[in-house]
């Protein structure tokens, strides 16, 4: 009996989204930069145009900065959720990890007054939480959805337990935390820089490194990936640890923004916004497809929508409806364009 012939694993797509076919005209150009990206940019421009025509304050630099700050926490979690989804998984515990990290940052800073220590420990705890998620998935043979549904509850409980359910510490007088909360570099808020840097690093990892190609391969076909020599378990653990660390960064920024460690407030429900951002950006929940740039555009679109609806004085209840409608519209358009037969449950 011979060893199975190694199968070539799928590689990261040449563009930011779907693989491209060679042809001439404008379509190759659009495909190269990603049809989803073009659609999202057009949607952002159209939405901004409509809102701005009704209220010119929308285009004020301070309002643009406010939109930027608004999307940072959601953006960080959506970016890392995209990586998990590309790998074929999902991590809905990221909001709880952010809450736990936030409260730890607040408590450690309150007791030590050392900003560096108060940031390093939550990052380490975030990594451990991610590692635990990955171990439960791999060794417990539990699907990522169920595993992280369980840890969503557990990590939230730990955050409430250590904080007794109350906001902890006060970071509003520390220069470093103040810088992250209100500082700016080159007119861009420091918070937004954190999102830009994290997103850029993850984009580079996915597009230009072996690890990134392996993640696409595992999401595309994990059996083929394993047969081609990829250490699938190691890659899964890497992605979950990455999710934990980025969620911890989000938690630290929540502490900076709010001035105290928040066990639940600010992070509860963020996991669903993160999935919304990733799905709106075209990440396929079955794995193997997705891009960081598209997710960032999707998060900006959500931020513009939310800011605009408040600006125009639209009933807050409509915001939930609009968010859901936007997600359904985007995903339906993507699915219909995929040419999948409309029979039975979608794949």
């Amino acid at each position: 009996m011979s060893d199975p012939t190694p199968t070539k694993a799928p590689e990261a797509p040449a563009s930011d989204s779907a693989p491209v076919k060679a042809s001439s005209g404008i379509m190759p150009f659009l495909r190269k930069i990603g049809v989803e990206n073009v659609a999202l940019v057009f949607a952002i421009i159209a939405l901004a145009g409509v809102i701005g025509s009704q209220n010119a304050s929308f285009f004020k630099p301070a309002n643009i900065a406010a939109i930027g700050n608004y999307v940072v926490i959601m953006g960080l979690l959506a970016v890392v959720q995209t990586v998990v989804i590309i790998m074929g998984g999902i991590d809905i515990s990221v909001g709880s990890i952010a809450g736990l990290s936030s409260v730890l940052a607040g408590m450690i800073f309150a007791s030590s007054s050392n900003w560096a220590f108060s940031m390093i420990v939550p990052l380490a705890v975030g990594a451990v939480c991610g590692l635990f998620n990955g171990c439960v998935v791999i060794f417990g043979r539990i699907t990522p959805l169920i595993a992280t549904l369980a840890t969503l509850s557990s990590y939230k409980g730990i955050a409430q337990l250590v904080s007794n359910g109350r906001a902890q510490g006060y970071t509003g007088a520390d220069p470093v935390y103040i810088f992250f909360a209100r500082g700016s570099v080159l007119f861009i808020p420091a918070l937004v820089w954190v999102l830009i840097i994290v997103a850029a690093l993850i984009h580079v990892m996915l597009r230009y490194t072996r690890v990134g190609r392996d993640i696409y391969a595992v999401g595309g076909n994990d059996m083929a990936a394993r047969l081609s020599g990829i250490n699938v378990n190691q890659r899964i653990l890497t992605v979950f640890v990455l999710a934990g660390v980025v969620a911890a960064i989000a938690g630290i920024l929540i502490t900076a923004r709010t001035g105290s460690g928040q066990p639940v407030s600010g992070s509860e429900g963020m996991e669903m916004l993160a999935v919304t951002g990733a799905a709106l950006g075209g990440a396929a929940l079955r794995g193997g497809k997705g891009s960081i740039i598209s997710t960032i555009f999707a998060v900006i679109l959500l931020g513009v929508l939310m800011n605009g609806m408040t600006l125009l004085g639209i009933n807050p209840f409509w915001q939930n409806i609009a968010q859901g409608a936007l997600l359904i519209s985007a995903v339906v358009i993507q699915q219909l364009s995929s040419g999948e037969r409309r029979v039975g449950l979608p794949k």
């Binding site: 301070a62 309002n63 406010a66 939109i67 929540i254 407030s265 600010g266 600006l311």
Partner: peptide
């Protein structure tokens, strides 16, 4: 959402 409170005040 305490974080949203900050965002909405900024906006």
């Amino acid at each position: 959402d305490a974080n949203k409170a900050i965002s909405e005040v900024e906006a």
